[in-house]
Design a protein around this nucleic acid. Structure first.
Lengths: 216, 216
DNA sequence: GCATATTTGTCCGTATGTATA
DNA sequence: CTATACATACGGACAAATATG
């Protein structure tokens, strides 16, 4: 429960199935099968499809149906191209350390540390996504926020096909903390540069995992 | 006719009504009234609503219906914040003048010149939008393209409430041509700086028109 | 605060068009 | 080329939420 809309419930369920790999990339998602399995009408399922297509978690092909997107390495590069534009730009644009708003980042970092200690890499991953979304939210731009939300949703799609997400997240727990330290001290220029290198490494790690996947 | 989807036809019609000011900002758009007026079913109208909400041309409030967004000066500032990040960044990132891809920009500039000579400011406006979208498309990033499309759709919403769009577009016909000249010569850094000032002026002009509107 | 009417959310059944085997 | 499966679109219906008096 906790959702006002049946379509939202369906979309949340589908989102789980996709990010947990139960719906592999390229899979066709049938209206009727989803409707029957979840006990809702086809119209509701169609509504949910639109919500997810909005975030790029499903693609809609006219007169053919909806499919789980086939993410390519080109997509990964494109997502990171936008991240490299947005995230360092946000950090660079911050005037002075607003400790109150940085508190949210701090709690997310703590969450990641805790999850990392428990070797719960899935939780580390979600905490990492929260970190970057919270980072962008510091800019106070609604449109940057929705853009970032979409990018992160697409990244969840990527991580769903990678077996061992540990080495993708673990190195960046420390770097998130480092970046936060710089920002707390008002060293935004330095932080932006640091984040640029950070994102380049992150992209490289994902692409490497992709190539490993392709060779298998 | 001519479009594969009935929902697309409806959304195009609604888009016209909105951008032409027949549906003023804040107006509620009823499902049944649209369905009756266009002779389609309610479900199809709902589908069209979702398409437009996707681009920000309508906002959807649960159990309340859909409304034409009330654009504020804060929204204008936010849209231009993203434009100032994206557009100059794209120009700066271009390696060398790809004359083949610049041809599209050239034709759009010519279109704007022609429309300007005929004092058809609406056509000048659409040509201007095409110019900036084509500019961003040079980056070859699908995600930047969709982001830019949404931003431009929101700007159409802004222009719909401004009476005299002439002084909003006319000064920028020349500046588009100037920018294109710089890019054709491979002077991308210079072009990016030029575009930054350009966008700042454009934002200022729109905000001025807004304040004039508010005082009235 | 209450009763009303309106509108939206959801569901069902069906017909038509499209893609694929 | 035919046949099958499926998506699109339609119309009607009821429940639930909202707005109005």
């Amino acid at each position: 429960m906790s959702e006002g809309s049946a379509a939202r419930t369906v979309s949340n369920q589908l989102s789980e199935w996709i990010t947990e790999g139960q719906l592999p990339p390229g899979a066709k998602v049938s209206e009727t099968s989803v409707a029957q399995r979840l006990g809702v009408s086809r119209n509701t399922v169609r509504e949910a499809f639109r919500l997810l297509a909005h975030d790029g978690l499903l693609v809609h092909e006219f007169n053919r149906g909806v499919f789980v997107p086939l993410v390519t390495s080109a997509d990964v590069r494109d997502v990171y191209r936008l991240r490299r534009i947005i995230e360092p730009g946000v950090v660079r644009s911050l005037g002075r350390p607003d400790l109150h708003r940085l508190a949210r980042l701090r709690s997310v970092v703590a969450e990641a540390d805790e999850a990392s200690a428990e070797r719960d890499w899935v939780r580390v991953g979600t905490a990492n996504m929260h970190f970057h979304r919270s980072l962008v939210s510091l800019a106070g731009s609604p449109r940057l926020d929705v853009t970032m939300r979409r990018l992160m949703a697409e990244l969840r799609l990527v991580f769903a096909v990678i077996d061992d997400p540990r080495f993708l997240y673990e190195p960046f727990v420390r770097r998130n903390r480092e970046l936060l330290t710089m920002m707390s001290a008002g060293r935004f220029g330095e932080g932006a540069d640091y984040l640029e290198a950070y994102l380049a490494d992150s992209e490289g790690a994902i692409l490497a995992a992709f190539e490993e996947k392709e060779s298998a």
